[in-house]
Amino acid sequence: MIRILSLLVGAFFTVVLGYSFVRGAYTAATEPAALTAEKVFYKKPEPLHLPSDGMFGKFDRQQLQRGFQVYQEVCAACHSLKHVAFRDLAALGYNEAEIKAIAGKATVSAKDPLTGEVKDRPGTAADKFPPVVYAGLGVPPDLSLITKARPNGAAYVHSLLIGYQAQPAELLKQFPDAKTGDGLHYNPYFKNLNLAMAPPLTGEGQVTYSDGTKATVDQMSTDVTAFLVWTAEPTLEHRRQTGFWWIGFLIFATVLGYMSYRNIWAEKKGH
């Protein structure tokens, strides 16, 4: 009984799927999927190498500070960084006084502990980066996690920042309807090719690095990306260090375990 019912159910599924397959194959053969501008002109991010890459990678503190400077002077006008606290900046090599000064320049809206009133006050080291008010087109995402929230995120951010260009004439010829809209900007590294963010890094020397590094557009973009890799996971270095110790111990224990296993089974042939 079970087998007969199963056979019927099996035959039903087989027929339905065979039919769907044939119809799908026919459609695919007769009506090739239409091309879109995104399919033809979208570019995958260019490879990017950062000091924090790879198992042995370490953050370059100097670079993180430069990247933080770019964030503050350029990106912070529109993008928040809400998961990061000012105190976290100690990891970039700032001392207590410097962190206090950085936090103090921010305005934080908080309850006054004495009156219970919600008021603006200067930030402290314990505060997180405050929300950013933005009034333009589009919704600038919070940047704390951006390099983890996109496929191949670090390379993506870097490519996007340096990838703005005029819309190719070829594209308009092929897809006349795909003209970049008003207030949007063409960038082949963005999924639908047009984004609301105007090119934020426009020219060499847009920020003045205190360590003398030349602030080319590519340099600024790489630095701010390195910084955003850190904001996405400040515990990255700790994780890898712990990993080496822990896995080293595990390998040692496994080898011992294997030897005792061999020892115990020695007189049982076949293993």
Partner: peptide
């Protein structure tokens, strides 16, 4: 003994993902 040492092997592979490609 046999399960024991494969626990070690499993933990090595699993930990490699957790610590280096989470």
């Amino acid at each position: 003994a046999k399960d024991g040492w494969t626990v070690g092997l499993f933990m090595v592979i699993y930990s490699t993902v957790v610590f280096f490609a989470p």
